[in-house]
Amino acid sequence: MAAIAAGALALPAGAHAGLLDYVGQCVPFARAASGIQIFGDAWTWWSQAAGRYVRAHTPRVGSVIVFARTARLPLGHVAVISRVVEKRVVMLTHANWSRQNGERGHTEQDVTLFDVSPANDWSQVKVWYLGVEGLGGSVYPVEGFIYPGAAKAAPGLSGKNPDDIAALIDAYAR
C-alpha cells in the first residue's frame, strides 16, 4: 500500500480504482495522485513548494494547480492536471469540487479547466461543475503549477478515452 499521512488517502500500488473512489478533501487526494509531499491547506502549497519543487505557470500532466485563497475558496483548492488538450484548455482530476448525490468530497476525473486570464497566463480559470454540466460561472485566481519532479503521479489520472472535443466545446462554445 502507498499510504499517505494518517487518516489520509491510501492507494494500492498499481491500482487506480482507489484513486477514483476516494471521498474527502482535495489536499490528501492531490498529494497521493501527484506524489508531491506538501501538507497543510491548499492555499499554502504554492509558498511551501518554493525551493522544494519547480513552480511555473504552464500546465503539465501530473502537475498540481494551486487555486488562490478567496472568499469563495477560503482554504484554496488543489487539483492534478490529467491531460493537456490545447494551450488554454486542460483536464484535471480532483476531489471535493462538485456535489455528487448531494454530497461533496467525491473525485472527478478529466474535468475541463479553461484559462480565462486576459494575458493567457493561467492566472484565472473556470472549472467544469457537475451541477451545471458545464463550466461554472465563477472565475478563480490561480497561483500556478507545481511540478512533481521525480515523484510519480498515480496511474489513472486520465481516463482511457477522455473527451477532448467536449472539453473544447465546454471552453469555447458556451
Rank of each mutant, 00 (worst) to 15 (best):
G131R: 13
E133I: 06
S63T: 06
D115T: 00
T44D: 05
D121G: 13
T112M: 06
T112A: 01
R104H: 07
H77N: 04
L130K: 15
A8K: 12
W45P: 12
V80Y: 12
W43D: 06
I65K: 13
H106Y: 09
V54Y: 03
G102K: 01
S123Q: 13
W128R: 08
V78F: 08
V78Q: 11
R60Q: 14
N120R: 15
P28R: 11
S34W: 09
P12W: 08
G51E: 01
R88V: 08
V116E: 07
V84T: 11
V54K: 09
L73P: 10
S34L: 10
Q25L: 04
D41A: 08
Y22I: 05
A8V: 02
G35I: 04
V66F: 09
A119D: 11
P59S: 05
L11P: 01
S47T: 13
H94Q: 14
W45L: 02
V132Q: 04
L20S: 14
A2Y: 03
R83F: 01
I65S: 00
R99F: 03
E86T: 14
R69D: 05
G131V: 14
E108N: 03
G18C: 06
D121P: 04
R88K: 10
A68L: 14
S34M: 14
L75K: 11
L130M: 09
Q124D: 10
A50N: 09
A30H: 06
R83S: 09
D41P: 10
S63C: 12
P12Y: 02
S82A: 11
D115S: 06
A42N: 15
L113F: 14
I4F: 08
L113V: 15
R31P: 05
K87R: 13
I38N: 08
T112I: 05
D121W: 04
W46V: 06
N96Q: 13
A33L: 08
T70V: 07
Q37N: 11
A5C: 07
A50P: 12
V84Y: 07
F39Q: 03
Q109W: 07
R31A: 03
A6R: 13
F67E: 07
D115F: 03
L75G: 06
H106L: 07
A10H: 12
T107Y: 00
W128G: 03
A68P: 02
L9I: 09
G14Q: 14
P74K: 03
T93A: 01
A33V: 07
Q124I: 15
V90T: 00
R31M: 04
S47A: 11
Y22E: 00
D121A: 15
V23K: 09
A10F: 11
Q37T: 08
V85H: 01
W128M: 05
T58M: 00
A95K: 09
I65P: 05
